[in-house]
Simulated scan of single mutants.
Amino acid sequence: MLINPNHSISPLVAVKSVSDNFELIVQMVKREVIGRYRGSMIGLAWSFFNPLLMLAIYTFVFSVIFQTRWAGIGEEQSRTDFAIIFFAGLIIYGLVAECVNRAPTIVVSNVNYVKKVVFPLEILPLVACGSALFHMLVSVVVLLLAELLFAHQLPWTVLLFPVVLVPLLLGVAGISWFLSALGVFVRDITQVTAMLTTMLLFLSPIFFPASAMPAELKIWMTLNPLVYFLDEARNTLIYGVVPDLSNWIVATCISAFVAWLGFAWFQKSRRAFADVL
């Protein structure tokens, strides 16, 4: 039996597929983003106003009603500090949650592409990730505008935020590849991912700093891969702290391995997609 070279699990094939189909990925991401707001009165502007409204709500609820303070940043913090720190964490979580929750249905909802031999199915999870990345970047703009408004300055380390995104996007791509293939065979996985992402929201240092965890539970916090990205996002976007190079290299290597595992699973599974769908 001849093996389609496009079904190779080599990481070089993944890189080549992204490179060769980059324009197609960009066009499909544009179509998906615009399609989400098609028919609305202000269209794509909702992608900006939604996070702006949410930040305003978080600021009011946490700073005015609950008067919550973020431990570890001193007593001089303003009313908006908690909301900004919380929103920065929520931005990272939102990217991961959207990709993970959408991945199991991404192939199932595009059966017409499965039937096309020449279509690169492996880019479908990346299109979903690209759409989530677009909305995350819009939220980052809202966050930076809020910092300028309330703190009147931005740390120069904002320029290093894309560096933090490299291992995050690699890991999310790997998970998306894995779940998108698994979702073809196990339709219940959608319900599982919804529960897991909800658990991740409350078990990650989004509403609270990692230092606030009891000592006996901190070991479990180290097993949460989201913690590193939450800390580094806040360091670069808010605190002005340069990411540690050694930690970044380790995170990138692990994420690259996860990406390859997810891609390999997708490539091995795709041969049966047409039979199942």
Rank of each mutant, 00 (worst) to 15 (best):
N4E: 11
I9Q: 10
S10F: 10
P11E: 08
A14E: 11
K16G: 05
K16I: 04
S17E: 12
D20L: 12
N21L: 03
N21E: 10
E23N: 05
Q27R: 15
R31D: 15
R31K: 15
E32H: 02
I34T: 15
R36N: 10
G39W: 03
L44Q: 05
L52W: 09
L53C: 14
A56V: 12
Y58A: 00
Y58T: 02
F60E: 02
F60W: 14
F66C: 04
T68A: 15
T68E: 13
R69F: 01
R69E: 10
W70P: 03
I73H: 06
G74H: 09
E75G: 09
E76Q: 12
S78K: 14
S78V: 10
R79W: 12
R79I: 01
T80N: 09
A83C: 07
A83H: 05
F87S: 04
F87N: 03
A88C: 14
G89A: 07
L90P: 02
Y93M: 02
L95W: 07
A97C: 09
E98G: 00
T105K: 08
I106D: 04
S109N: 14
V111P: 00
V111M: 03
Y113R: 08
V114N: 03
V114E: 01
K116C: 01
K116H: 06
V118Q: 14
V118S: 14
V118T: 14
P120Y: 00
I123C: 00
P125Q: 02
L126Q: 00
L126R: 00
C129N: 09
S131R: 09
A132R: 04
H135A: 06
L137N: 06
S139F: 04
S139G: 13
V140Q: 08
V141F: 14
V141R: 06
V142S: 01
V142C: 07
L144A: 10
L144I: 12
A146H: 01
H152N: 13
Q153T: 08
Q153A: 11
W156G: 01
V158I: 11
V158F: 14
V163D: 03
V164N: 00
P167Y: 04
G174F: 06
I175K: 01
W177Y: 15
F178L: 15
F178V: 07
F185N: 07
F185A: 08
D188A: 08
I189G: 01
T190R: 08
T190C: 00
Q191Y: 14
T193L: 00
T193V: 15
A194N: 15
M195L: 15
L200D: 02
L200N: 00
F202Q: 07
L203T: 08
L203A: 10
L203I: 03
L203R: 02
I206F: 06
F208Q: 11
P209G: 05
A210D: 11
A210I: 11
A210T: 08
S211Q: 15
P214M: 03
P214F: 09
A215T: 14
K218F: 12
K218A: 12
T222C: 07
L223H: 10
L223C: 10
L226P: 02
R234G: 09
N235K: 09
T236N: 00
L237F: 10
V242W: 07
D244N: 15
L245Y: 11
I249N: 03
V250K: 10
V250W: 13
A251D: 07
A251C: 08
T252V: 04
A256Q: 03
W260V: 12
G262S: 06
F263C: 00
F266T: 00
K268S: 08
R270H: 03
A272Y: 15
F273K: 05
V276H: 10
V276E: 11
